[in-house]
Simulated assay, not measured.
Amino acid sequence: MADLDPGEHTIDELRDELDDIDDRETLEELREAETDGEDRTGAKEAIDERLDAVDDEGDSDGDESESGEDEESDEEDDENEGSDESAGGGQDGDTVGIVDIRDHVQQNASDLIGRPLDGIVEIERTDDGWRALTEIIERRSVPDTQDILGRYALDLDDSGRIIGYRRLERYRRGDTKRDEEAPAGG
């Protein structure tokens, strides 16, 4: 483990590195290193996913630490994914659910666009896959109500890979007139 520093990798690169790690203890150390370092949500989620995969593969190292809280969390995730997959159209694992899309967008939007993700505004199923609307911080200001945000549409295929994106608009975070005008236009 000593050679892998999660902070030196993008989230996608980290995922590739994690695929080769089957030791639960090493993965937990990596998660702690990420938390103490850059503390990226996407990186921690990637490590958690690998931990879950290692647990599912029957890696029984540390069975005592796997009980309790982790099992409850896994059960909640399974319940949420089931409802999301039925909303997204697939339950056999052939297509991804809305939670998978959300996680993928959270993990990759910043790296793709080159600016920090502020939030995901909307995710919808399309004929060709998925579309996610995100808000990206294009310029930070003090106070933060003066931040300049960009609203981006990300197009994803059925498997959840981002296949395109575009900026739809830019606006100030504190611009409430935008929100008031939206219902009249729709």
Rank of each mutant, 00 (worst) to 15 (best):
N80Q: 13
D59Y: 03
G129F: 00
D52Q: 10
L18T: 06
Q107S: 15
E64N: 08
D19C: 10
T145F: 04
I101K: 00
G68Q: 12
R102E: 10
P116K: 04
I21W: 14
D5T: 04
I148S: 03
D23W: 04
E181M: 08
E122R: 02
D118T: 04
G150Y: 03
D20S: 13
A182R: 12
H104S: 10
I148P: 03
K177A: 11
S86G: 06
E28S: 09
E57Y: 11
E17Q: 11
E25W: 15
W130S: 01
E81I: 07
G82N: 08
G186I: 05
D16Q: 06
E138G: 02
E76K: 03
T26C: 04
R166M: 05
R15T: 02
V54Y: 01
G68P: 15
V54N: 01
D19T: 13
D70Q: 14
L156C: 07
I98Q: 03
D157G: 06
S67I: 09
S86P: 02
V142E: 15
D39E: 12
G7C: 13
D157E: 10
D84L: 05
L18A: 03
L149V: 08
T134G: 05
I137V: 15
D127I: 10
E180N: 13
E28V: 09
K44A: 08
D111R: 01
E66M: 15
R131T: 05
D118N: 10
L168R: 07
S65G: 05
L112Q: 05
L27Q: 11
G68K: 09
E124Q: 08
R140A: 14
E122M: 03
E8W: 01
A2F: 11
M1W: 02
V121G: 10
H104N: 09
Q146S: 07
E169C: 02
E169G: 09
D118S: 10
G150C: 01
G88Y: 07
R102D: 08
D22I: 12
Y171H: 08
A109C: 01
I98E: 08
E32N: 14
L18C: 05
D20E: 14
D127T: 05
D59T: 09
I162D: 14
R172M: 13
R166I: 04
A109S: 06
E64D: 14
L133I: 07
L149K: 13
P183G: 07
S141T: 07
E17G: 02
K177S: 13
G160C: 13
D144K: 07
D74V: 06
E49P: 11
R40N: 10
R40K: 11
Q91H: 09
T10V: 00
G90E: 08
E69Q: 15
N108I: 00
L14H: 00
L117R: 10
D22K: 04
L156W: 00
I162V: 15
E8A: 14
A87T: 13
G114M: 02
R161H: 01
A43L: 06
D55N: 08
D78E: 11
V121R: 11
R40I: 14
D128V: 06
V96N: 02
G89K: 12
R115H: 03
D155F: 00
D147V: 12
R125K: 15
E75A: 15
P143F: 04
V121C: 03
R166E: 14
E81H: 12
Y152N: 12
G58A: 10
I98L: 12
E135Y: 06
Y165K: 09
S83A: 10
D175W: 04
D179M: 06
T134D: 03
L156Q: 12
R161Y: 04
